[in-house]
Nucleic acid binder design. Structure first.
Lengths: 329, 329
DNA sequence: TTGAAAGCGATACCAT
DNA sequence: ATGGTATCGCTTTCAA
C-alpha cells in the first residue's frame, strides 16, 4: 500500500491535520513541528494523493491537452512549453492526440474535461459551434485558433508573412506561389488571408497552388505543380510541407534557391538540418505553450472574467539558404 | 456545480447506492428502476467523477507516461502508439517530459503514480535502484531499457546491428566508426555492446569515436572526429545524431556515401527526408508503444504474475542512399 | 499551535 | 431489489 497522510502523521506523532498544514500552510504550524513533519515526508516518500485532494478542493491540479498530431514536430514543441510551465505551477498534464479527427477531438474533450481544471486545445479541428459549447462548461484555451471570445494564443501571421514577402521581393521575386494546408483548417484560412493582403500590398503576383495534407508527402505532391506554375519562390503551409517541396526539387535536380526559393512556416528544428537549410517564419512554439498555460491559470484564478484573454505572439523570419535572388531569365 | 450521484438519486427518488448499481451492475437492479435512473442520468448529464471512484476502487482509468525528451522525434512516435492503444482500452494518458533529468524523472514518477493505475517509462534515465523501488509499489513497464525482472519492451538491437554490419561489409567496408550517445544511457551501453560482438563476428575494425549528446549538435560535433578516425563507414547512436553527421559532412564537402557511409538508429520519419536519405536501423516506434500498453494492462489484470512479461521487438535495416560501396583508396 | 471531526463523490458491504 | 453506512485520502472548519 502507498504511504498516506496518516502514515506520516503516525510516524511524526502528530495528527493528519498538522501534516496537511505543515505542507500547505507552514506558517500555521510551529517551525519545529513543520520541520519534523517534512523530515518524515521525505523519509517515507510521501506525496499527497491529488485525486483525494481534488475531491475536497474542487481542483484536480490537472490540465488537459489535445493536439491533432504529435508526429508533426510543431506540436511536440508546443507540448514541451506547456509541460515546462505546467510543472512550474505544479500541474500535471493529460495528453491526447486526436489524429486530426474532429469527432475524436470532441470525444476526447468530453472525456478529459471531467478530470481536469482546464483544457488547452492546440490547432483544434472541431467546429466553431462545438468549440463554443465546450467553452461554455469547461475552461478552455485555444492555441493557434481564434473563435469568438474564447481565450486564445495565436501567432502574428500577418507580421510573419510581411517579413517573408518583403524578404522575397527584396531578392527580386515578383511571382510567388502558395501551397496551402487542409482547407478546413483555421490556420490555413488565416495564412492565405494575410498572404493575399501582403501580396497585394507588395504588388507581387500570388499563385495559389492548392491544398495538400500538412505532411512531407503533401509537399512532395505539390512540388511539380509549383514548378508548372512558373513562380520563382514558394511559401508553404508549414515547414514539413516545405521540406517535402525541397526534397522533390532536389530529386528532380531543380536548384534551390537558384531556380526557386522556398519558405516554410513554423520554425521546427528540422528546418535547419536539411540542405539547403530552410528559410522559415518561426513561431515560438514552447513560448506559445507557456502562454497557453498562463492564460489558463489566469482564467482559473478569475473565472468571472470569461473570454477576454488573448495573446498574440511575435513571429520571426529566419533567413537561410533556401531563399536567394530571383533567377534572371 | 457539477451534477453528482446524489442529484441523480434525488431526482429518481432512489438512493445513491441504487444509482451506482444501475450504472455499473444493472443486473442487480429491477429493470424498471435501472431505466428510470438512466433517464435521469441522461437528463441531468451526469457522469461519474473518476477521481472519486478511483479513491475507493483503487483504479483510476489513467496511465502515466514519462519520456526524456519530446523534442527527439523517436518519442512522439512511441507516444502515438501508446495513445492509440490506451484509447482503445478506454484509458487516458498522463504525459510528462523529464528533460533528460533523472531527478526530475523520479519526482514525476512519484507525483504521477498516485493518479494512475500504471506507468510506462520510456528510456528512463533513473538509476536501477530507483527503478526497482518504483517497480515495488507501482505497476510499471520499461520501454527501451531492461532492469532485473521489471516488465519491459525492448528492441532487438543485436539483430539490427547484425543487419547493419552485414550490409556495410557487403559493401566492402572493413573499418567502421561508432558515435556513441550519453554514457549513462542504457541503450547506449546496449548498442555498443552488441556492436562490439557483431564487429568481432564479422571481422571488421570497430573504432569508437566517443560519446555525444543525443542531438543534432552532437552529430555535428562528432563529424570531424569521425573523419580523422579514418573509417569508411560510421554508425551513430541515433538518427538525430546521424543527421548531424550528414549535415557536417555536407558542409565540409565530404561526399556521402562516396567518401563515407552513414547509418543511423531509430527510423524516424526525418531520416527519409534529407539528402542523401539516411540508412537506418528502424525501431517500430508506435508498435513498441502499443506493446507497452498491452504489457501494462496484462500486469494490471494479473498483478501476481510480477515481472515476467517481456517483449522484444524486431528491428529492420532500412537501406537508403547514405550508404554505398567503400571507397577504394 | 494542534487535534477531532465533518465531508468531498463514489463504491461496496451489510442489512433489510 | 434496495437503502444505510463505512470508507478511500485529503482538506478545512471548529474547539481546545
Amino acid at each position: 500500500m502507498r504511504v498516506t497522510i496518516k502514515d506520516v502523521a503516525r510516524a511524526a506523532g502528530v495528527s493528519p491535520a498538522t501534516v496537511c498544514r505543515a505542507l500547505s500552510t507552514p506558517e500555521l504550524v510551529r517551525t519545529e513541528t513543520a520541520d519534523r513533519v517534512r523530515r518524515f515526508v521525505a523519509e517515507l516518500g510521501y506525496s499527497p494523493n491529488r485525486a483525494a485532494r481534488g475531491l475536497i478542493t474542487g481542483r484536480t491540479g490537472n490540465l488537459g491537452l489535445i493536439v491533432p498530431d504529435l508526429a508533426n514536430p510543431f506540436f511536440p514543441g508546443v507540448v514541451k512549453g506547456i509541460q515546462a510551465r505546467a510543472r512550474e505551477a505544479d500541474y500535471a498534464i493529460f495528453l491526447a492526440d486526436s489524429d486530426e479527427d474532429a469527432a475524436a477531438e470532441a470525444h476526447l474533450v468530453r472525456v478529459l474535461s471531467k478530470q481536469v481544471d482546464g483544457l488547452i486545445l492546440c490547432s483544434p479541428r472541431m467546429s466553431e459551434a462545438d468549440l463554443r459549447s465546450v467553452a461554455g462548461d469547461t475552461p478552455i484555451i485555444l492555441l493557434n485558433r481564434r473563435v469568438g471570445r474564447i481565450p486564445a494564443v495565436t501567432f502574428d501571421s500577418l507580421g510573419g508573412m510581411r517579413q517573408a514577402v518583403a524578404h522575397l521581393t527584396a531578392l527580386g521575386h515578383r511571382r510567388i506561389g502558395w501551397v496551402g494546408g487542409p482547407r478546413g483548417s483555421w490556420s490555413n484560412r488565416d495564412r492565405i488571408r494575410v498572404l493575399r493582403t501582403v501580396a497585394a500590398e507588395a504588388g507581387v503576383d500570388l499563385v495559389e497552388i492548392g491544398s495538400v495534407q500538412p505532411r512531407f508527402a503533401g509537399g512532395i505532391a505539390a512540388a511539380d505543380l509549383v514548378l508548372a506554375a512558373g513562380v520563382t519562390a514558394v511559401i508553404a503551409y508549414n515547414d514539413v510541407v516545405a521540406l517535402g517541396l525541397l526534397s522533390r526539387f532536389n530529386a528532380r535536380g531543380i536548384g534551390v534557391p537558384e531556380r526557386i526559393s522556398v519558405v516554410g512556416i513554423d520554425g521546427i528544428a528540422m528546418a535547419e538540418m536539411v540542405h539547403p537549410p530552410l528559410t522559415t517564419i518561426s513561431l515560438a512554439m514552447p513560448a506559445s505553450g507557456r502562454a497557453g498555460v498562463d492564460l489558463l491559470l489566469q482564467l482559473l484564478a478569475d473565472p468571472e472574467r470569461h473570454g477576454c484573454a488573448r495573446r498574440e505572439l511575435e513571429t520571426h523570419l529566419l533567413v537561410r539558404a533556401s531563399t536567394g535572388p530571383a533567377p534572371t531569365s
